[in-house]
């Protein structure tokens, strides 16, 4: 069966709901040590479902169908995605490769489609000031790489997400965060035992560095002009 997905906040809510449901459906999420993750997913799902219900949609509709993409975002009707970041952060910290992989894939799509962007702030426990959400997201992604023992499919999702974070025009990452993204890709290139991941990390690094230098040159041209 084919259906055209709606755009706008509704479809965005559905994307989030499906992603959370997918994480909740994993066997590993049900383990007792993952209670915080499960609770965070359920809380976020409840909020999303309420929003959907208020607009006459159900999150349970077509649960089986994966919504593979969030709709393209625009700044005006932005769902406050930062509110829903916690379950994904916990999923990234989870020791299950399947759960982490799903979370990384969702974070990449949310960045690519502009639902996580440079304007959003996140409150972080232990820090007096809010930090930019993208910085926190990139940090979370990089932490998923724990050396050569990292699951190969997780490595690939890290590379994919970091390439999007660096090259997207809405993420706008700088300094420590940018350096961290580049360094993580380089580390995967150096240490990965998977030939595919090595090749991909190499291609990704090339593309990242070219984009970074092109932007630097654009800025210095502007200053000179």
């Amino acid at each position: 069966a084919t259906k055209l997905l709606q755009s706008g906040p509704l479809a965005r809510g559905l994307f989030l709901a499906r992603a959370l449901q997918k994480i909740l459906a994993e066997k590993d999420t049900k383990r007792s040590q993952n209670t915080p993750l499960r609770e965070a997913c359920e809380a976020a799902l409840e909020q999303v479902s309420e929003k959907l219900k208020a607009s006459g949609q159900s999150a349970d509709e077509n649960v089986d169908a994966d919504t593979p993409m969030p709709p393209p975002g625009d700044d005006l009707v932005m769902v406050a995605a930062d509110k829903y970041f916690t379950p994904f952060r916990l999923a990234c910290e989870c020791k299950s490769a399947k759960v982490t992989r799903t979370a990384l894939d969702c974070l990449q799509k949310m960045m690519a489609y502009g639902h996580i962007n440079s304007h959003m702030m996140a409150e972080v426990e232990g820090f007096p000031d809010a930090m930019r959400l993208v910085d926190l997201v990139v940090e979370t992604i990089c932490k998923c790489f724990v050396g050569e023992a990292t699951d190969e499919s997780v490595q690939l999702q890290i590379i994919k997400a970091l390439l999007t974070a660096v090259t997207s025009n809405v993420c706008d990452i700088h300094e420590g965060t940018l350096l961290r993204a580049v360094r993580t890709c380089y580390n995967i290139y150096l240490t990965s035992r998977s030939a595919v991941n090595q090749t991909t990390a190499k291609a990704t690094l090339t593309q990242m560095i070219n984009v970074i230098f092109r932007r630097m040159e654009d800025v210095s041209d502007d200053i000179r002009a």
Binding site: L5, A11, P68, M69, Q108, A112, T164
Partner: peptide, 11 residues
């Protein structure tokens, strides 16, 4: 499914 897409910059 037919999904709305945006230009791919990564992969």
């Amino acid at each position: 499914e037919v999904v709305k897409t945006i230009p791919t910059i990564g992969f």
